[in-house]
Design a protein around this nucleic acid. Sequence first.
DNA 1: ACCACAACCTGGCCGC
DNA 2: TGCGGCCAGGTTGTGG
Length: 269
Amino acid sequence: MPELPEVETIKRELLPHVKGKVITGVEIMRPATVRGMAPEEFKGCLTGRQIINVERHGKYLVFDLDNGEYLAMHLKLSGSLWVKKSESEVPNYIKVVITLDDGEKIFFRDPRGFGRMWLVNDVCEITDKLGPEPLSPDFTPEVLAERLDSKGAPIKSVLIDQAVIAGIGNMYADEILYDAKINPTRPASSLSLAETERIYKAIKRILPQAIASKGASVQDYFRPSGEEGMAQFNFKVAHQRKATCNCGGPIERIVVRGRGTYYCPNCQK
DNA sequence: ACCACAACCTGGCCGC
DNA sequence: TGCGGCCAGGTTGTGG
C-alpha cells in the first residue's frame, strides 16, 4: 500500500509525463472518488489547466495547476496512477481518467475504492495537517525527540501519526522499529535519547532504501509504468507471516492500537 | 486534550 | 471444491 516511498516513486516517475502538459479531458467512472464538488464541476475546473509541477506531501500527491489551484490526491490503501495511451493497456478498477494534450492518459486505479481526489485553493490545506517531512534536512534527531517526548502512546502508533511525522505508514513503521531494535509497544515518551537516535537513523536509512527500490509492491501498489516495486524484498518483518528472524526466533504479529504489527520479540525487547 | 471506534470498500484468506 | 464470513488498512468523523 502506498506510503512515503511509494508516493515519492509515483511522483518522480509521473513528473516527466505530465509536467507542462495541458489537461484536455476528465472521465469519472466512480463519482465518490471526487470529493468537494460535483463530477461535472470538477471536470470543468480541470479541463484546459496546465500541470506546472507535481509535489508529494506525506502520502498526498499534489498537482500544481497554472491557475494557482492544486489537484490533490490520496491513494489510501490500494490506489495507483498509470500513464498509458489507452485503456486497453491498463487493468480494471479504473475510477478516474485524465487525458493530456499529447494523448497520454493518467489512470487512477483503485480496487478498494478508498482513494480520493479533490481541488484545493492553497496547498496549506494539506500541509497544515502534517508533521515534518522525514527526509527533509530540517528533520533532525532533536526534532524527532521533541515530537516523541510528549506522547504516551506506543511508539508504533506515534510513528504512523501523520501529525507527528508525515508519510510513515503501517509497514514502514514496523521496518523502522525492527531496524532500531525497539519494541513497538513502548510508550514514545519512555524512549531514551540513544533509542530515539536509533529510530532517527532507521527512518533515514529505511525510507531512502525503499525509494531506491521504487517502493514496495504489496497488495495493489504499482508504478506509473505498471511495473512493480522491489522494496518488499528488503522487508525484515513487515507482512512476514510465519517467518523467522535472522536471530533464529519467530517474527510475531500483534495488534497495537488496532493496527497489525510485525516484530521480533527477541531483537525488539 | 486524549482515546476508542465506526465508516468507507473489496480482494483474499480462513474455516467449515 | 465451494461457500459464507470476516479481516486489513489510512483517514475522517463522532462520541466518550
